[in-house]
Amino acid sequence: MKNSALIVVDYSNDFVADNGKLTCGKPGQRIESYIVRRIDDYNSHKCPIFFMMDLHHEDDYNHPENKLFPPHNILGTSGRQLYGKVNDIYQNIQYNDHVHFIDKTRYDSFCGTPLELLLRERGVKRLEIVGVCTDICVLHTAISAYNLGYKIAISARGVASFNQTGHSWALEHFKNSLGAEVEHQA
């Protein structure tokens, strides 16, 4: 785990809960225990963990996502909170120096955030990415990570989408176009 960091992308109520505004529903819920195990593992080794969370404002009519998706992850709503047991574990570890919660306003976790600077300061060379949605925010984050020279690891047990075709395509793209370590479900 040396020089590795865990990136947890958009694992919020709006993206995962049955009543979420842009939910991937059951597929997102099924990856919860895997994400919790990975957080526990990184936390026990004091390795960096980054919770990257989509942030929107209720009256932000000019944001490009508003033309594609219903309003979601609105500041100050319960939809923006981490989902289920991931929220519970975050509440217990959030004050540790190696745990970070960073707002993002684009699909890509690097765009307009201090993520790259924080990774470089910590000597991180390899990123394990978990969360939702495989073919949107996880994909764009992985592409930037690749372009910035990071090694990438993604397990099918740790990512999900509301679009199964897109999910499957993204897993192959991670492996074949980004050279990522991709662990497919058994």
Score class of each variant (00 low, 15 high):
K2I: 14
K2N: 13
K2R: 15
N3H: 13
A5E: 04
A5G: 01
L6S: 10
I7D: 00
V8Y: 08
V9C: 05
V9Q: 10
V9L: 10
D10T: 02
Y11S: 07
Y11V: 08
S12P: 10
D18W: 09
D18F: 11
L22Y: 06
C24A: 14
K26A: 11
K26Y: 12
R30P: 10
E32Y: 09
R38Q: 15
I39S: 09
D40T: 15
Y42R: 13
S44G: 08
H45K: 15
C47I: 12
M52Q: 00
D54G: 02
D54F: 06
H56R: 13
H57N: 13
H63W: 09
P64I: 05
E65Q: 11
E65T: 10
K67F: 11
L68D: 00
L68G: 03
F69M: 12
P70K: 11
P71T: 01
I74G: 04
R80Q: 06
Y83T: 07
K85F: 06
K85H: 07
K85S: 11
V86E: 04
N87D: 07
D88T: 08
Y90E: 07
N92E: 15
I93E: 02
Q94C: 14
Y95Q: 12
N96K: 15
D97P: 07
H98R: 02
H98W: 05
V99M: 06
H100R: 10
H100N: 05
F101Y: 08
I102T: 01
D103N: 14
D103G: 04
T105M: 13
Y107R: 09
D108L: 06
F110N: 00
C111Q: 14
C111F: 13
G112K: 00
L115F: 01
L115G: 02
E116C: 03
L118S: 03
L118I: 02
L119V: 03
R122I: 02
G123R: 07
L127K: 03
V130E: 04
V130F: 02
G131N: 03
G131I: 02
V132Y: 09
D135M: 04
I136F: 14
V138Y: 05
L139F: 07
T141E: 00
T141W: 00
A142I: 04
S144K: 08
L148K: 12
L148I: 05
Y150C: 01
A153L: 12
A153H: 12
S155D: 12
R157H: 15
A160T: 01
N163D: 09
T165L: 14
H167V: 01
S168R: 13
W169V: 12
W169S: 12
A170N: 07
E172C: 12
H173Y: 08
H173I: 06
H173Q: 09
H173C: 08
E181G: 09
E183M: 13
H184M: 15
